[in-house]
């Protein structure tokens, strides 16, 4: 019985062993995976082509802590993203949202394809027509020249 109670008392420790600590915040592996997913979609403002998850800048570390605190508090991914956008603008999102400001950006591949087709059409149209067949005299002269 004693042993059983001891085992029961130690059960929470088992759960704690499953927890991960990252940047000073302790959370479950599932929460950590969510935090990593969010952090990898956000741009580090210091090293601008790195994600918050991948950057070693101090600010990125602080933002990782904030993301994890929000995850532990049970906030949704969207509300955490909104928290960042509210402070740093849409530039913080590595994948830009589809808003009037980014329409040209999202349209650019299609514009490129259209321009390509236009160029292709120009070249196709530019094909020279076959010349009229040679006259008897010209054909004889050509044979003479090619001998």
């Amino acid at each position: 019985m004693r042993k059983f109670i001891l085992a029961l008392a130690l059960l929470p420790a088992l759960a704690y062993a499953q927890m991960v600590t990252r940047d000073g915040v302790t959370l479950t592996p599932g929460q950590e995976a969510r935090a990593e997913d969010i952090g990898s979609q956000l741009r580090c403002l210091v090293c601008q082509n790195e994600s918050i998850e991948g950057s070693s800048a101090d600010l990125a570390k602080q933002l990782r802590v904030i993301i994890r605190q929000h995850v532990v508090a049970g906030d949704s991914n969207k509300s955490i993203m909104d928290y960042m956008v509210q402070r740093y603008g849409i530039f913080v999102l590595l994948k830009p949202p589809f808003i009037p400001l980014t329409w040209a950006l999202y349209a650019s591949p299609f514009v490129g394809i259209l321009l390509g087709f236009f160029g292709f059409w120009l070249v196709r149209r530019a094909k020279v027509e076959a010349p009229a067949p040679l006259s008897e005299a010209d054909a004889r002269r050509l044979d003479e020249l090619l001998k």
């Binding site: 403002l45 210091v46 600010l59 402070r87 740093y88």
Partner: peptide, 8 residues
């Protein structure tokens, strides 16, 4: 600073 959006 984070609440202000200061990044450096």
């Amino acid at each position: 600073a984070i609440n202000w959006g200061v990044y450096g």
